Each structure stands twice: as structure tokens, then as C-alpha cells.
Amino acid sequence: MSSTNQELVVVTGTSSGIGRATAERLAKEGFYVLAGVRRQEDADKINQDNIEAVIVDITNVNTLNDLAKRVKDDLYRRPLRAVVNNAGIAVNAPLEMVPLDELRRQIEVSVIGQVAVTQALTPALLASGGRVVNIGSLGGKISMPGFGIYSAAKFAMEAINDSFRREMASSGLKVIMITPGGVSTGMSEQGIQTSGRLSKLMTPEQHKRHDRLFSAVKAQAESWARDGILPEKVAAIISRAIHEQKPRTRYTVGPDAVLLTRLVRFLPDRILDRMLRWQMKL
């Protein structure tokens, strides 16, 4: 694509992991990618051919208005082909002790922020017949011990994704959910750091109940970081969802996601409970 007929794609959360891999893949395919990052130092790292870093805090409506204006005012690269809602955080801690401000932060970033991005860019997507690609998680299908706060946000996005897809079906806007399993990304490291910080807030009684769980959560996150699928594999599926004329409503990525999303539909709760606790060595 030349600069006079390139299609735009917006990808949030591109400082690392799935977002960065997606931005780089789509840029190589000829799209002009507006890559959302929160910090200038991350912007400096991702700026390259066909990738323009934009400072976007998805919890700040002013930066989202600026992003929508950037898309609208681009006279050379249009239309807006897709928005990839990838930005997010991971708050992993037992429900009993997680500070409510941390719960609010998880929902604010990983749910309200995703909706805010979508709302800001829906006019451009409707004009182009584009599509919204939401990056979900296996955590939106099954809630593991210690991951309930994160899963709450991902379950919420499943509901929002399905409702929005049905609302916009007659308007030509396609809404797609990508559901990866464990991915080797910086999200795992960020989750480990958050868990470590929150573990210090427990009372002595809570330490007795949950020290083992915090260790299991850390081990699980380390396992994903070490053995999870590469973010480039998820990026390839995102590219497919953007390119296909008739994309599926959802794509599941990774053997653990494929297996567990099937098991959760058939196994009784108590068997699933025992299986997950065994898997986490609890």
C-alpha cells in the first residue's frame, strides 16, 4: 500500500507483548498503525516504518478524543480498518484481601477503558465498515484461584463483546473476540510484581491462609512467561481476523485455551475446582 491509500489500524497497549507484535505485523502487511502507548520512552522504541506511536491513556477521555481526531483528520490514510483493544493490566490476589482501589483500577483499565476506546472510534469504524478486535483471555472463560479480579474484567469484556456484536450486526461493524491462553509477555511479569506488592498488605491470619496461593499464582505466571505461546502467534490470528472478509466471531489461540474452554462447558464445578487446584498445586 502506498501512503495515499494505506488503511489505518489502531492498536492499544503496544509497548510490549501482543500489542507490539500485532503493530509490527500489521505494519509489515502494509497497514499504517497508530500504536497506543502511555509513555514517551515506549513511543520512541516503537516508531518505525508504517507505525506511528500515539500517547494514549485509555482511562483519560482527553487522550481518546485526541486519538479520534487524529484518525478523522488523516486525509492520506483511510479508512480506519480496525481497532485492536489490547491494553490491559493484571491484578492477581485473593479476593479476601485485594484492596478495593486495585479492583477499581483493574475494571477501569481493562473494561471501562476498552469501552471508551471503542466509543471514541465507532463513528470512524461505521463510516468504513471496519471492525473491533477485542483481546480477551482464557481468564474470561475460567476463573483460577488468585486470578479472580483479572478474570472479572475479562468475563465482563466477553459480555460487552457479545452485546456490542449483536447491537452492530445490521450496521456493518464486525466485533471479534480473540481468546489466548498463556502467552509469553510482559503482562506475566507485571502481574508477578503486582502480586508481590499486594502480598505485603496481608494480615498475619491472611498470610496463613494465602501465602501458598500467592506462591502458586507467581509460579503460574512464571510458567506462562516461560512456556506460553509467543505473542507473534496471537498477532497472526489478529491479522487473520482483520483480513478475512467474513471473520469468525471469536478465535481461540493456544492449546491450553482450546482444552480448558471446552472442559469448562462440560465438567461439573466441583471436578473443575479440584482440577484447577491440583494444576496449581494447592
Rank of each mutant, 00 (worst) to 15 (best):
R197L: 04
G181V: 01
G191M: 09
K208F: 02
S171P: 00
M187G: 06
S170T: 13
V217T: 15
R197H: 08
A216V: 03
I178M: 13
E167S: 13
K208P: 02
V217S: 08
F164V: 12
M168F: 12
T179L: 06
L173Q: 08
T185V: 08
T194A: 14
A169T: 06
P204M: 01
L213W: 05
G172N: 12
P204H: 01
S163Y: 09
G196W: 01
H210A: 03
S199K: 13
G181N: 07
F214S: 02
V183A: 10
Q206L: 00
E167I: 11
R197A: 12
D211C: 03
G181I: 00
K174R: 12
Q206Y: 01
S171M: 15
F164R: 12
L198A: 04
G186N: 09
L201Y: 01
Q190F: 05
V175D: 07
H207Q: 13
F214M: 10
V183E: 10
T194Y: 04
S184D: 09
I176E: 03
T194H: 13
S215E: 14
S170R: 14
V183S: 11
T194S: 15
Q190G: 15
M202N: 00
M168E: 06
A169F: 08
I178R: 12
R165P: 11
E167H: 09
K200M: 02
V183P: 14
R212H: 14
S199L: 04
R197S: 07
P180A: 04
I192F: 06
Q206H: 09
E167D: 15
P180T: 07
T179Q: 13
G191T: 11
S184H: 09
G172W: 12
R209D: 12
F164P: 13
K200W: 00
D162N: 12
P204F: 01
Q193G: 12
V183F: 10
V175W: 09
P180H: 10
P204Q: 00
F164E: 11
G191C: 13
D211A: 05
T179E: 15
R166C: 02
K200R: 07
S170Y: 08
Q193V: 14
R165C: 07
R165E: 03
G191L: 10
